[in-house]
Design a binder for these strands. Structure first.
Ligand SMILES: [Mn+2]
Ligand SMILES: [Mn+2]
Ligand SMILES: [Mn+2]
Ligand SMILES: [Mn+2]
Lengths: 222, 222
DNA sequence: ATACAAATTTAGATTAATCTAAAAATAGTT
DNA sequence: AACTATTTTTAGATTAATCTAAATTTGTAT
């Protein structure tokens, strides 16, 4: 039996450690979960005892394969529910995260498999993040940050790094959505801002911050 | 802020007290929630402090209007989710209750209103229980137990009292569903069993237990 | 090699929810 | 009215998850 709190810690270790590949520090977990480092220490000890994590004092934590499976399951549920909220219940992409934080802990294998079927087996959530399959495997794409796209190159917007409501609403306002085609018209060395053209029509200037939070898939150069 | 546990106690008080009309005993709550009476005493004190319940030592508990609203909301969510599971995710009526026990605690007004819309504003859950509207009001029907239907009277099955999986599967097996027309062919004084005819065709004998757990709406006598 | 700052862990306390065992109140019966 | 069985409450302890403050370890810089 695993508690909701344990699931949240495991998920955080998974995501901070790049889908379970790296070792993660106590402080970084505390920051994400908005708890104190001492609480994290207690919890990772428990996770290690239960076989979900590898932990040596002062050396950080990583997930066991058992822990990775739990984490992938929770992330799968989170992202499938987000798709459901957008596709079936008229939510916008900036409204779904907090509700998915609750729904990701509902326990029923049939529920999640039927939801997957209802949504026609989506591979990505509304923010472009990949949905692990029922074995916990993730199809990883070769997306890069818009910031790393060179002048006069083109990319298709495939995801966001910052999923905060304010950033998502900014994108909505400027008609940038997943699937939008983005051409880097020019770059400004002075402040690292860039001028982009969206879907071959609207031109606008974006800050470094924006460019560093938008994932694109680079298009083959003509 | 209200906890999941508090919600479950409030819901139990609501249901034991006939949708909040009666005062409820400590022991009866303990029995439903499978806890000890001493735990119930502690919790009802807390509920009273928080303004959800009226409580005087040794005199039982009832809900305040604030408590009733919470309870109706939780019951509304529980029953809407049950409809969702059956209508959209291919669950059978004997599979939905435990999952709805989890889903009923998800907090989002928009979520539940959109779910209501998606399901086309259902008035009853898959077991025939009424779904409170968003104001907490319940449309109550004049259903009676099949056991109280007299010989040669006819009723339409509109609900079940026992919602256990074993009873629901028994009904499935014998083709009794919500909407089935049931004629009381004869009654046996000896063991209170009765012979019924379902939808004008199949005849079968049912025990007192079955008759006491099926709600019907009596049809006007010809 | 030492000193220091940052990260991490330990010790001890708190809160929510639960339990057992004992005490108190209530209700039914003579 | 007194006795008794049942119900309910109190007292004290436990577990999960958290916190603060103090102690320890690590890593970096002189
Ligand atoms: Mn999310
Ligand atoms: Mn979560
Ligand atoms: Mn139910
Ligand atoms: Mn519940």
């Amino acid at each position: 039996m695993i508690t909701l709190t344990e699931e949240n810690y495991i998920k955080t270790i998974y995501q901070l450690g790049r889908y379970g590949t790296l070792t993660v520090s106590t402080n970084s977990i505390a920051e994400v979960l908005e708890t104190k480092a001492s609480s994290v220490t207690d919890m990772v000890k428990k996770l290690a005892e239960k076989g979900y994590a590898n932990y040596k004092r002062y050396q950080g934590v990583s997930l066991t394969s058992k822990g990775k499976k739990i984490a992938a399951d929770v992330v799968r549920k989170h992202r499938l529910w987000e798709v459901f909220l957008v596709e079936k219940l008229n939510f916008t992409w900036d409204e779904v995260h907090d509700i998915a934080e609750q729904l990701e802990h509902i326990k029923s294998e049939k529920l999640i498999n039927e939801l997957d079927k209802l949504l026609d087996y989506p591979t990505h959530d509304p923010h472009g993040d990949p949905i692990p399959d029922k074995f916990g495997d993730i199809k990883k794409t070769d997306k890069i940050l818009l910031f790393n796209l060179s002048e006069s190159s083109t990319g298709v917007c495939v995801g966001v790094k910052d999923t905060s409501s304010s950033f998502l609403k900014y994108l909505d306002k400027h008609q940038i959505a997943l699937g939008s085609k983005i051409l880097v018209v020019s770059r400004e060395d002075f402040d690292d801002s860039m001028v982009i053209e969206i879907n071959g029509s609207v031109k606008m200037s974006i800050s470094q911050t924006v460019a560093n939070n938008l994932f694109v898939k680079e298009e083959a150069n003509t």
